[in-house]
Design a protein around this nucleic acid. Structure first.
Length: 346
RNA sequence: CCGCCCUUAGCUCAGACUGGUAGAGCAGUCGACUGUAGAUCGACUUGUCCCCCGUUCAAAUCGGGGAGGGCGGACCA
């Protein structure tokens, strides 16, 4: 594959690339490594899927892909995960992520999985962390983490260590590229500032867009109605999509459209399939879309009605998460042990 | 180690001084209107008032003890 083609694959559906020319150089030089980290906190949902789906693009472009399950981070961020649940949540996250990689049409065996505490307690790592802590002001660290770490009236030190550790992770995992949601921008900009003084180079940063929730606002992981869970049954998916905010002709804040764009279409592309909207004859009959762009322009011109879009989107989303859902359902103990409060009795 | 403050609906809080078994906003649920949802109207729901003991006919409210959280002081060979 030519460098330009790989560049397009790597950067498609991203919110920002810092810096594009640095990425071009990396790709021209060979097979750079990219890493993405997930802190095993709450249950994984469809927005995670869109970022993991993109790992297939990286693999197809010949990148070396590492997924970090950042267990310590999950605890450092306002104790989102209790210390004694870190093992169970880490195991659940890895299983879910593997399922999503596979559902995206890639081979999970091609992804390197690393667990945070496996190296974050090493001497060199700890020493560099203390050095960074000495060099970084409280407000600088707070600013870097502000979009990621949970806000609180009485913030703990953990949230201040968080961005420093994440920066060190780039070096520890020898990553050339750091990938994550655009909410991670603050942290990686700090990384680019700090790492050159700590024995590593500035990472190229690739940011995924943050998807809208189904309620018309930012997706909230704690609001069930605003997201589709990986274990939601087809009925529940249909219901949530049906209830979603989806104004006629409006693309802004339209979660349904975004899921179709960032999750469904890339996976259909990978399979060489098209997006079919079944529509009653009275409204003009079925529609077939080969690209998201055409679907969006039809939606904007109001040729495609929200109700018809929702019906189709619900089915496709349901189908796309099906392999992950069944994989997780095969091992119910994973969720039960990771979330004893909500899945313990099931 | 000492002192002060806070803890009430899913969330933010009022009520406490002047005891009479609890309220607002937001959220949520349901209808109406739309070929979806939202917006807008209409209706509705929501609680171990942090825990224990005591005073009282009666305690969210008063007294004592405890837990969790916050703030400050002191100590600094």
């Amino acid at each position: 594959m030519e460098t330009a083609q790989r560049f397009d694959l790597v950067t498609r559906n991203t919110a920002e690339v810092v810096e594009e020319n640095e990425l071009e150089e990396l790709l021209a030089d060979g097979s750079p490594s990219v890493y993405v980290g997930y802190a095993p906190t709450g249950e994984m949902h469809i927005a995670h899927f869109t970022t993991i789906r993109k790992l297939a693009d990286f693999l197809n472009a010949g990148l070396d892909v590492t997924v970090l399950v950042a267990d310590l981070h999950a605890h450092l961020d306002d104790e989102k995960s209790p210390f004694d649940l870190l093992d169970a949540r880490t195991e659940y996250y890895q299983e879910a992520i593997e399922g999503m990689v596979e559902a995206a049409g890639a081979d999970p065996a091609d992804v390197t999985f690393v667990r945070g505490m496996d190296y974050q307690l090493d001497e060199e790592y700890a020493l560099e962390l203390y050095r960074m802590a000495a060099e970084t002001t409280i407000s600088r660290s707070q600013r870097a983490a502000s979009e990621v770490v949970r806000e609180s009236e009485s913030p703990n030190l953990g949230g201040l260590l968080y961005p420093l550790m994440q920066s060190l992770d780039v070096e520890a995992l020898e990553a050339d590229i750091a990938y994550g949601g655009i909410d991670q921008r603050g942290i990686y900009m700090l990384s680019r500032e700090l790492l050159p003084d700590h024995g590593w180079h500035k990472p190229v940063c690739l940011f995924a867009p943050l998807l809208s929730g189904l309620t018309g606002e930012k997706m909230s992981a704690s609001d069930e109605a605003s997201k589709v869970n990986l274990t939601d049954s087809p009925d529940v998916v249909a219901e949530k999509i049906g209830d979603a905010y989806c104004p006629t002709g409006e693309t802004e804040g339209n979660g349904v459209l975004e899921y179709v764009r960032y999750l469904v279409f890339p996976i259909l592309d990978e399979r060489g399939e098209h997006f079919v909207v079944e529509r009653p004859e009275q409204y003009g009959g079925d529609l077939v879309y080969e690209t998201y762009g055409k679907l969006e322009s039809d939606f904007v011109s109001e040729e495609l009605h929200p109700q018809d879009l929702k019906n189709a989107a619900g089915e496709y989303i349901s189908e796309v998460i099906e392999p992950v859902r069944s994989r997780l359902n095969e091992r119910p103990e994973l969720l039960a042990e990771a979330y004893p409060g909500t899945h313990g009795d099931q």
